[in-house]
Write a protein that binds this DNA or RNA. Structure first.
Length: 282
DNA sequence: CGGGTCGCTCTGTTTACTTCA
DNA sequence: ATTGAAGTAAACAGAGCGACC
């Protein structure tokens, strides 16, 4: 709808409404536009009104160019912007003061603030969206990294379980070799069988489980000199592996997490025997 | 307390104007 | 130089809300 001629009606009981006289959308104005040639419109463009005196001349301009909508001058916008930065709500006193200072109708100032708030909100929504998107992307990346780490740790569990089994068999064979008569094939078969059972059920010691129970790692078996007991981990049966130092280690044969730490599938317990331990029981 | 009025904000829309291909 | 599309700003409409009488 064309605003047409805008007159601030301060006596209105509704806070001063514009009276719309002869806008292009109103019956009064309909048809008037076609009477003005394009050339006339271009040459006699109605200027911005910036002073009270100019406001008094509105009637003249309105008669000449009743349908023009005028943009605010850069100076007017600048002052309005400064005012908006200080306070994006408009107190009645402030509105009158600004209107007077800018040579605008109070209603125009109110409308400007209204539109400015709408623009600010749109921008704010865009900023919020960008922030949330960045946050989501970061979380997604973290999630992917955790999935990879999880896969690496599963591989470690499987590998270590196998090593442990071999070590326990080796120890058992040595024990039997120490006896006066060599073990029979039946005895060896029985030993192997009992070792396998223990590993598969985890019934002989504490168990280190991965998240989904895909593999079990028995530790601290009291009847066998387990690999764990021989190495650094004493009295920590049933505890959890925890990474304590991210400053060492090769990434060549391991998986690397996003915090720069490497998980070494094959040799973490060898590393653990050194001063710069990677893993402890907690 | 309920209803009417006023003054304000917000959202959505229209319109005038500008820019650019 | 002209024109039409797209973008932007000014203004409006209508609904909602709180304060006041």
């Amino acid at each position: 709808m064309d605003s047409g001629r805008l007159i601030f009606d301060s006596s209105s009981s509704h806070g001063g409404h514009m009276l719309i006289l002869g806008g292009s959308g109103s019956p009064l104005f309909r048809g008037t536009r076609s009477m003005l040639s394009l050339e006339e419109g271009a040459n006699k463009r109605r200027p911005f009104f910036t002073t009270a005196e100019e406001l008094l001349e509105e009637e003249y301009y309105d008669e000449q160019f009743p349908e023009k909508k005028r943009r605010l001058t850069p100076e007017q916008v600048h002052l309005l912007e400064r005012s908006f930065e200080a306070e994006n709500k408009l107190e009645p006193e402030k509105k009158s003061e600004l209107a007077k200072k800018l040579g605008l109708q109070p209603r125009q100032v109110a409308v400007w603030f209204q539109n400015r708030r709408a623009r600010w909100k749109t921008k704010q929504l865009e900023r919020d969206y960008e922030r949330l998107k960045a946050s989501y992307d970061a979380l997604l990346a973290d999630h992917d990294t955790l999935l990879k780490d999880n896969d690496c740790l599963r591989s470690q569990v499987i590998s270590l379980t196998e090593k442990l089994r071999e070590k326990e068999l080796e120890v058992a064979v040595k024990e039997l070799e120490g006896q006066p008569s060599p073990p029979s094939m039946e005895m060896l078969a029985t030993l192997q069988q009992s070792g396998g059972d223990r590993l598969s059920t985890g019934s002989m010691g504490s168990t280190l489980l991965d998240g989904q129970g895909a593999a079990a790692l028995p530790v601290a078996d009291s009847s066998v000199n387990s690999y764990f007991q021989e190495s650094l981990i004493e009295g920590a049966a049933g505890g959890c592996i925890e990474q304590v130092d991210c400053g060492v280690g090769s990434e060549e044969d391991g998986c690397t997490s996003d915090d720069g730490c490497s998980y070494l599938p094959g040799n973490i317990f060898q590393n653990a025997s050194h001063a710069d331990n990677w893993w402890v029981w907690s």
